[in-house]
Simulated assay, not measured.
Amino acid sequence: MNDVNRDLRLDGRTVWVTGAGKGLGRAMAVALSQAGAALAVTARTTGDLEQLASDLSGHGGKVLVAPCSVSDSTAVRSTVERIVDWAGRLDAVINCAGVSPHFTRSEKVTDDAWRQVMDVNLAGTFYCCREAGKVMLEQGGGSIVNVSSVHARTGFERIAAYAASKGGVEALTKSLAVEWADRGVRVNTLAPGYFRTDLSSGLLDSRWGERIVDGTPLGRVGEADELGGAAVFLASDASRFVTGTTVTVDGGWTAR
């Protein structure tokens, strides 16, 4: 009989979280640290990461601050090398870095705006999977969790680039899961619905917020710390027979 509590622990594991400075990435990093993981945390700037490291270190967590833009493949490669130098291994990755800077009618989306979203959300996720995957394949195992969105599969206005990028993330996840399964590397997607973060607050506080809540059977948006359990599950041995799937945490949200 498996010990579920033991399987959910990450003691002795090294986990890399991108987009860890704020919002959902930060909340998942906290949950992973509480489960015993040594963390490498990445974002484009250092201030938020250093505050996170200070908070976690104060509770005994082991943290490496590794600023990096995931859209820069050379920087991603160097970051993975730095993590392995620091910890000796890399057991799990949470690819949470993402942007959604435009809430614009599709006919008004510029080429530059489209590329910005694709470079971070889709290309950046692939770069991180590729470089982390090299380490995990050599180790003989690991878990990659790509953060997608309910909008990968459910249409909504004014987010064409974001939705397309997240749909690409889910297709990428399925492909890598099949390709790497026989070498012990699992690849899954975690798809949040609407959570209150710095990224979403402007939308939720606008006229669209009521519509979003009305489409959520639980009658509210999520709080960031409510995503941590799903991240721990997918990173840990509790999900060792799960690959190529999408875990949706959205309060039952549907577009209305």
Rank of each mutant, 00 (worst) to 15 (best):
F126P: 11
E179D: 15
W208V: 02
D198G: 15
Y194N: 08
F233L: 13
D205A: 08
V187E: 08
V178S: 11
V117E: 09
Q34Y: 07
R130Q: 13
V187N: 10
V17T: 06
E223H: 10
A37N: 08
M28F: 05
S54K: 14
V187K: 09
A132M: 07
A27E: 12
T246N: 06
A152M: 12
D198K: 08
S236I: 01
S236R: 03
L52I: 02
G140E: 10
I159C: 10
G155R: 14
A92K: 13
G47V: 07
A37G: 06
I94Q: 00
L203C: 05
G142L: 04
A231T: 04
L227S: 08
R220S: 03
E179H: 04
I144V: 14
T216R: 01
G193E: 13
E179T: 11
E138A: 11
V117S: 05
E50P: 03
E157M: 13
E170P: 04
V249H: 07
S106T: 15
Q139M: 11
A53C: 01
G12L: 05
G252V: 11
L122T: 08
L199Q: 15
A35Q: 03
T189A: 15
S200L: 04
A53E: 02
D91I: 03
G61H: 05
P217T: 11
M28T: 05
S239D: 07
T79Y: 00
G133L: 08
R105S: 15
G202E: 11
G25H: 02
W180L: 02
V80F: 00
I144R: 09
G155T: 15
T216A: 05
V185C: 03
Q139C: 09
R240Q: 06
V80I: 13
T173F: 09
D237H: 04
G142E: 04
S149H: 12
E81F: 05
N2Y: 12
V185P: 10
A160M: 11
A29S: 15
T14F: 08
V41C: 04
C128R: 01
F241T: 07
E179L: 04
E210A: 15
G228D: 09
A40S: 14
Q116R: 12
A37V: 01
I212V: 14
E81Y: 05
R77G: 15
V120F: 04
V247H: 14
M1W: 14
W253M: 11
M118H: 13
C128K: 03
T154G: 07
